[in-house]
Lab assay of single mutants.
Amino acid sequence: PPDDERKKAEKAARSGNEEKAREILERLGYSEDEARELAKRLR
């Protein structure tokens, strides 16, 4: 489910793995720019 994926992205971002967070968010349908912004904010 998307919620689980989003949680994974948050966890990745918090542990400093912004790249992985961005990949997950892009898979969820965010654009590259949106995903980058979100990954930064989740950190």
Rank of each mutant, 00 (worst) to 15 (best):
P1M: 13
P1G: 14
P1R: 14
P2A: 13
P2T: 11
P2R: 13
P2Q: 13
P2K: 13
P2G: 13
P2D: 13
D3H: 11
D3K: 09
D3Y: 11
D3T: 12
D3C: 15
D3Q: 12
D3S: 13
D4M: 12
D4A: 12
D4L: 13
D4F: 11
D4C: 15
D4P: 12
E5Y: 08
E5N: 09
E5S: 10
E5Q: 10
E5H: 07
E5I: 08
R6Q: 09
R6Y: 15
R6A: 09
R6P: 05
R6K: 10
R6V: 15
K7T: 14
K7V: 12
K7W: 08
K7H: 11
K7I: 10
K7D: 09
K7S: 11
K7F: 08
K8N: 12
K8M: 13
K8H: 12
K8Q: 14
K8S: 10
K8E: 14
A9M: 04
A9G: 05
A9W: 02
A9D: 04
A9H: 06
A9F: 03
E10F: 03
E10W: 02
E10A: 14
E10G: 08
E10H: 08
E10R: 12
K11D: 15
K11G: 08
A12M: 11
A12G: 04
A12F: 08
A12Y: 09
A13Y: 02
A13H: 04
A13G: 04
A13Q: 02
A13T: 05
A13F: 03
R14S: 07
R14I: 11
R14W: 04
R14T: 07
R14F: 05
R14L: 09
R14K: 13
S15L: 11
S15F: 06
S15Y: 03
G16K: 06
G16W: 03
G16T: 02
N17A: 06
N17D: 15
N17S: 07
N17W: 13
E18P: 06
E18M: 15
E18T: 09
E18I: 15
E18G: 06
E19H: 09
E19P: 09
E19L: 11
E19Q: 12
E19C: 15
E19D: 12
E19Y: 03
K20Y: 13
A21M: 09
A21N: 02
A21G: 03
R22G: 01
R22L: 07
R22Q: 08
R22K: 08
R22F: 04
R22W: 04
E23M: 08
E23R: 13
E23C: 11
E23H: 10
E23S: 08
I24M: 07
I24V: 03
I24D: 01
L25F: 14
L25W: 06
L25H: 00
L25V: 00
E26Q: 15
E26P: 00
E26G: 07
R27H: 10
R27S: 13
R27Y: 08
R27A: 13
R27E: 06
L28A: 07
L28G: 01
L28M: 14
G29T: 00
G29N: 01
G29Y: 00
G29I: 00
G29K: 00
G29S: 01
Y30G: 02
Y30H: 04
Y30L: 10
Y30T: 00
S31T: 13
S31Q: 05
S31G: 08
S31H: 03
E32H: 06
D33K: 09
D33A: 14
D33M: 08
E34W: 02
E34Y: 06
E34L: 07
A35E: 01
A35L: 05
A35G: 02
A35Q: 02
A35T: 06
A35F: 03
R36E: 10
R36K: 12
R36C: 05
R36S: 07
R36V: 07
R36A: 10
R36N: 08
E37M: 07
E37G: 04
E37L: 07
L38F: 01
L38E: 10
A39V: 14
A39R: 00
A39Q: 01
A39G: 02
A39I: 15
K40R: 11
K40G: 11
K40P: 07
K40M: 07
K40D: 14
R41Y: 03
R41W: 03
R41H: 14
R41A: 07
L42F: 09
L42G: 03
L42Y: 12
L42Q: 04
L42D: 03
L42M: 15
R43F: 15
R43W: 11
R43Q: 11
R43M: 15
